[in-house]
Each structure stands twice: as structure tokens, then as C-alpha cells.
Write a protein that binds this DNA or RNA. Structure first.
Lengths: 136, 136
DNA sequence: GTTCTAGTTTACGTAAACGTAAACTAAGAT
DNA sequence: ATCTTAGTTTACGTTTACGTAAACTAGAAC
């Protein structure tokens, strides 16, 4: 028997609330098995959840993630659906590339800001010290 | 005299609405000069707006961006403020690094999905194929 | 002088993504 | 038997980041 998880185990692992997980189910992003009235999550559900959260961190809406992730579900998609999805994927890839650049620029911005703050703190601290700890 | 912009010029450039720009002002992220009752944006404001939007793409809330960006404003910060800000910067840098990884993983996911879809489309086209793409 | 054309203020509305509280269930532990 | 301890459903509330409409202003064009 393969590994299963309770809702609170997943919540703990990903540092989210059970409410969030149930919400994703409401939005039909997840559909765990049931044992009585309790939800039982399989490894597959866990992976899906992980992907959803990753998407979230990248600024994907739940609906976008849903569209992208539904590619792994069984059930036939017709050609139009597939084409639509391919287009969506291309756009998402492009936006990811842009975000990549955003990250690089923001990184350098943050690094610069950090240096300025560090030296400001140093100046403030040893209010005599000529500070020179700025080796990156 | 250095370059200035009207609100709709900026809106056009960044493909956002004027409402959005005024909203950022309400939230004290921007503070353009006035000429009569009209807003006049300087290059500095434009750069700020650009940074705000970049932050948004990276999932920063407006308040976070505001905190980070306020580093460039004049006005003294005391040591506690500076330290707090440095901590915030470190956290943001860490989260950016994680997001970097997220992007790499999502990229490969999307690429894989795209390949599967492409071949599905190809299969579908030559509609003779008995489909058997279920390799997980 | 009036008619566009931006621009402005004020204010209520809205979608997404949960938070939170209430009331209930079911399985173990004591 | 009852008391915890998850887990569940239902449903209203909340925050963020704007959308949208109404009513007003001010300069430019005719």
C-alpha cells in the first residue's frame, strides 16, 4: 500500500492551513479519496499540492495552475483544448523568462540596498569607526 | 528641465490604468509634484513605479515594496529601523533565491508538458494513432 | 462661448484567496 | 461513558488591489 497523508500532515509539511487545502478542493484542484468522511491524500495529491504552491509563488492564479496541471489528469482533451493549452504554456514560459530577469534585477537592487544599509549601520555604530567590512 | 510625464503617459508605458497609479499614491508609494491639480511625474517617480511593478511580478505586496523602496527616500532612519530593514532584505533575498529555483523547476515542467501536448496534437492530427502516451 | 479632451475626487463594488467561528462527527484514550 | 483530538460542513467575514461610475475642473480647439 502506497503512502497516504492526512490533511493536517500536508498542512504541516507545506506550512499552510487545512482551510487552504480544502479550498483547493472546492476549486477542484485536488480530489483526495475518502475514508468515511475523512480525506485521504495519496502521494499524487501531495505532488499536485506542491506544484500548486510553486505556481502560487510564481504568481499564477489558482485557475491558471488548474489549467496547467490538468494536463496530467486522465480524460481526453480535444484538439482545440490542447492547442489552447499549448498557447497558455507558451505565454507562461515567456512570463517566467521575464520574471527570471526581474529576479536578477531585484537581486542586485537588494544587494546594493543591503550594502548601503550595512555601511549606514556601521557608521552609526562605531560612530568613529571608518568601517570597511564590505567584502561580498 | 528634466523630463516629466503625465499620468496617462505612464499608464500607457507600463500597460496599467491611471487608477492603479493613483492608488499607489493613496498608499503613499508615489508622491508626484502637482501643477494646479494635475499630477506631474518626474523620472524618479517613473523609476519607482517600475520597481513597484517589478516587485508585484515577484509576488511582493505593495506594503513590502513600499518598505523596501523607502530605502531610497531621504529622511533619517534610526538604527532600529535600519536593522529591521536589513533583516527584511535578507528574507526577501532568500525568498528570491527560492523563487529562482521554483522558476527552474516550473520551466522544466512546462517544457515537458509542452512536448507531451505537441506530440498529442501530432497524434491527433494523423488520427489513426491508438494513443498510448501514458508514461508516468 | 461651447465642446472636446485629459485629468481629478469621491465612493461604492468586486474577485481571489483564504480567515474565522459555529456546530457536528468519529475514533481513541482514560 | 465521557473527554480529547483530529476532522468535517456551512457560511459569513476580511484583505489586497484595484474596477467602475458619477460628478466636477481646466485648458485646448473650433
Amino acid at each position: 500500500m502506497s503512502e497516504t497523508y492526512t490533511i493536517s500532515e500536508l498542512a504541516r509539511e507545506f506550512a499552510i492551513t487545512t482551510r487552504t487545502i480544502r479550498y483547493y478542493e472546492d476549486e477542484t484542484l485536488l480530489s483526495p479519496r475518502r475514508k468515511g468522511q475523512q480525506r485521504i491524500y495519496a502521494e499524487k495529491d501531495r505532488v499536485l499540492l506542491k506544484l500548486i504552491l510553486r505556481g502560487k509563488r510564481l504568481g499564477f492564479s489558482l485557475n491558471e495552475s488548474k489549467a496547467i496541471l490538468s494536463l496530467y489528469e486522465p480524460g481526453g482533451s480535444n484538439r482545440h483544448q490542447l492547442q489552447t493549452m499549448l498557447d497558455l504554456l507558451r505565454k507562461k514560459q515567456a512570463s517566467l523568462r521575464l520574471r527570471f530577469e526581474d529576479i536578477e534585477m531585484m537581486q542586485s537592487y537588494l544587494l546594493e540596498a543591503e550594502e548601503r544599509i550595512s555601511s549606514a549601520l556601521a557608521d552609526d555604530l562605531g560612530n568613529q569607526a571608518p568601517n570597511s567590512n564590505n567584502q561580498n
